[in-house]
C-alpha cells in the first residue's frame, strides 16, 4: 500500500520539525519519518541556553514542544522506523519504511542531521550498559568512586570529563590526536581538574573485561606502544558525522559526505531539498537547523505550487 503525501520529510530533528510546521500550516499533507526518536541531537543536550525566546530549557523539552506544534498543524510523525529504500528519480518520489510501508510525494526534504561517531570496535556492543556509555548525565553516578575513561578531544568530551569527575575517582581522557579540538577555555578547565589525566595520540584497539568492562586498550600512534588503561567505565564522545549514507550516489555530496544545496536549499534533484546538519554548511546549531527547515519548506511550497515552472537548480555556485 502506498501512502500519498505532498511532502515527505526525512528526520525529525529541529530542521525536519520546522519544515513540517511550515508545510502543514500551508495546508500541505506532510509526513515526517525518523529512524530514531523525534528531537534528533536536541535530545542529547541537557541544557539549551542559546535558543532565542527560551531562557533555558532541556533539549528534550524543546523537542517535545516542536513535535506537539508540528502535530497540531496536522503533520504525521512516524518514529523509530528505518528507511529501507528510496527512489528520488521520478517526479513522484517514493520511500519504503520499515514497519510502515511505502510513502510517495513530489517533494522530499532531507533533514537527517548527524549521527554520533562510534569507535566501530567489536567489543563496543558487548559492554554497552555494562561499562560503555554515551551519556554522562544519564550514567555518571553508576561510576561513583571508580576509574573511568572519556574518549575524545572536542568540546563534548572535555566538558563531560569535567562533569564525570564529580563521580569518578579518576578520569583518563584518551584522544586520537596530540592536541585538542575543544575551545581553549574548555581545555583549561579540564587541565586544571586534579582528577583528570590525559593520554594523547592514541588509537583505541579494544575493550577488555569479561562480564563488565575492566580496561581500555590503546596504542600510541607514533611509537606503537600498547597501553591498557584501567577503567570500569568508558564514555565515548568522538563527534558527529552527517547521516547521508542513504543518499550516496543519488544526491550530490561534498568530500565530507554533506549534501550540497543552493541558497534555497534545493539539492541536485528537483523536488528534493536538504536542511540542517546533513547539508554542507559551516555552523551547526539548533537555530541554524530551524532556519534551514524554514527555507527548505518555503522553497518546497513554491515548488509544489509552481511545479515544473521552477528552473532547474544550478549547484556549481553553491557548494559549501
Amino acid at each position: 500500500m502506498t501512502n500519498a503525501y505532498d511532502a515527505i520529510i526525512l528526520g525529525a530533528g529541529p530542521a525536519g520539525l520546522t519544515a513540517g510546521i511550515y508545510l502543514a500550516r500551508a495546508k500541505k499533507k506532510v509526513v515526517i519519518i525518523d529512524e530514531g526518536i523525534a528531537g534528533g541531537q536536541m535530545i542529547l543536550s541537557h541544557t539549551v541556553a542559546n535558543y532565542p525566546g527560551v531562557l533555558e530549557a532541556t533539549g528534550a523539552g524543546i523537542a517535545r514542544t516542536m513535535v506537539k506544534q508540528a502535530k497540531s498543524f496536522g503533520c504525521e510523525v512516524v518514529t523509530q522506523s528505518r528507511l529501507l529504500k528510496i527512489d528520488l528519480g521520478s517526479l513522484q518520489k517514493t520511500v519504503d519504511v520499515e514497519f510502515e510501508g511505502t510513502y510517495s510525494a513530489p517533494v522530499v526534504i532531507i533533514a537527517t542531521g548527524g549521527i554520533p561517531r562510534s569507535l566501530g570496535l567489536e567489543t563496543e556492543a558487548k559492554f554497552k550498559g555494562h561499562g560503555i556509555s554515551y551519556c554522562a548525565t544519564c550514567d555518571g553516578e553508576f561510576f561513583t568512586g571508580r576509574e573511568i575513561v572519556a574518549v575524545g578531544g572536542g568540546n563534548s568530551a572535555l566538558e563531560e570529563a569535567v562533569s564525570l569527575s564529580r563521580y569518578a575517582s579518576k578520569v583518563t581522557v584518551i584522544h586520537e590526536f596530540d592536541h585538542f579540538q575543544a575551545q581553549p577555555w574548555i581545555v583549561a578547565d579540564a587541565e586544571a581538574n586534579p582528577k583528570i589525566e590525559f593520554l594523547m595520540n592514541q588509537k583505541i584497539e579494544a575493550f577488555a573485561g569479561d562480564e563488565k568492562l575492566e580496561g581500555v586498550v590503546s596504542v600510541d600512534k607514533d611509537s606503537g606502544q600498547r597501553v591498557t588503561t584501567k577503567a570500569e567505565g568508558c564514555f565515548v564522545f568522538i563527534g558527529y558525522t552527517p547521516a547521508t549514507q542513504a543518499f550516496e550516489g543519488i544526491l550530490k555530496l561534498n568530500g565530507r559526505k554533506e549534501i550540497v544545496t543552493d541558497e534555497n536549499l534545493a539539492t541536485s534533484i528537483p523536488g528534493v531539498f536538504a536542511a540542517g546538519d546533513s547539508r554542507a554548511k559551516k555552523y551547526r546549531q539548533i537555530t541554524t537547523a530551524v532556519a534551514d527547515g524554514t527555507v527548505a519548506a518555503l522553497s518546497a511550497i513554491e515548488y509544489l505550487d509552481k511545479g515544473s515552472r521552477i528552473p532547474q537548480i544550478k549547484l556549481a555556485a553553491s557548494a559549501g
Partner: peptide, 26 residues
Amino acid sequence: SFMGLPFTVYFKNGKVVKATSSIQNK
C-alpha cells in the same frame, strides 16, 4: 550488573524473563 539507564525488565507470570540495560531500539 547494570550500569546504564534505563533498566528495562520483562515479566511473564510475575517472573523476570529478560532484562536489558541502556538504550534499545524498536
